[in-house]
Design a protein around this nucleic acid. Structure first.
Lengths: 157, 157
DNA sequence: TATTGTTATACTCTATAACTATA
DNA sequence: TATAGTTATAGAGTATAACAATA
């Protein structure tokens, strides 16, 4: 009877998991990403920073006086797409666009004290949520995962 | 001199990689996903199937006579979002909406011969591209990655 | 000529809500 | 009442192309 029950479960599992799609890295990445992203939004709440805005703020806090062009390159998005993100961060009072003596084209992005505090707070909350979401992964597995994802990313030009 | 050159490279690498963001699974997932997705689109060309449409076709080929509701659930999207995807596949002649005797609400999705052929062809091309893109990962690493991603996915309700 | 920030625009993906026809 | 498919709509996210100011 244990055998028959096992086979029933196995059959169910096969029907659920056997899809060709499961073999594609891309499909698995997408599905996993959606889960983690939803968790991210839950962590920071309805009026909290979105993932893109959070990432931009993170880099501005860490690399004060970075220019928008450099930031866009770091984030892997277009300069034009960054404008709205910086507008939002400036609107929230988390950073300032400052002029740079010697090159009046660029606008160095400088985090405010409030911005730094908000980032530290958000960072802690996202970390906490992510840890809880991924509690069925060991620390070693998480490290392996990050390593493999960065290996994929390392091929980018 | 080798030492000084090494330290310069190390310093550059540190500046590039030291970001807090790199510690987040979500950020790494997103960046890796974008790379693989772009590769996917390159694999199937400008007028080829998009990732979502490919995924839907895959499941219809594999689970013939699946209903739209079941398919949407399998793909993790809303019923309403699936309509345009099925429209496109039907427009390309890759599947047919067929009535089901006994329940006139549902429309069983049946792949055409052309649809099956197109899927097999696309599947092979995507696989080939993905293998090339990820050639710096060993087969074992790819298996590990898929396993870890599915572990994340397994927590979903 | 090239680069920085910007605007305008369009396209993809996705969700929510409401409708219809069935059950 | 509930479900399947559908429509309408809106909001992210992103890219492309063009522009003004500056180098």
């Amino acid at each position: 009877m244990a055998g028959s029950e096992e086979s029933k479960i196995a059959e169910l599992k096969r029907e659920q998991d056997a899809s060709d799609l499961e073999e594609f890295i891309g499909y698995n990445l997408k599905r996993a990403y959606v889960i983690v992203q939803n968790d991210f939004r839950a962590a920071l709440g309805k009026d909290g920073l979105g993932p893109r805005v959070f990432s931009a703020l993170s880099l501005v806090v860490q690399f004060s006086h970075i220019t928008q062009s450099r930031l866009a390159r770091k984030l892997g998005i277009e300069r034009s797409g960054l404008v709205a993100i910086i507008d939002e961060l400036e609107g929230r009072g988390f950073l300032a666009r400052t002029t740079v003596p010697g090159d009046r084209r660029v606008q160095a992005l400088v985090p405010t004290k409030q911005g730094i505090t908000a980032y530290r707070d958000a960072q802690a909350r996202v970390k906490e949520h992510e840890d809880l979401l991924l509690e069925n992964l060991t620390a070693a597995e998480k490290q392996t995962l990050i390593g493999l994802l960065q290996k994929i990313r390392s091929g980018e030009e």
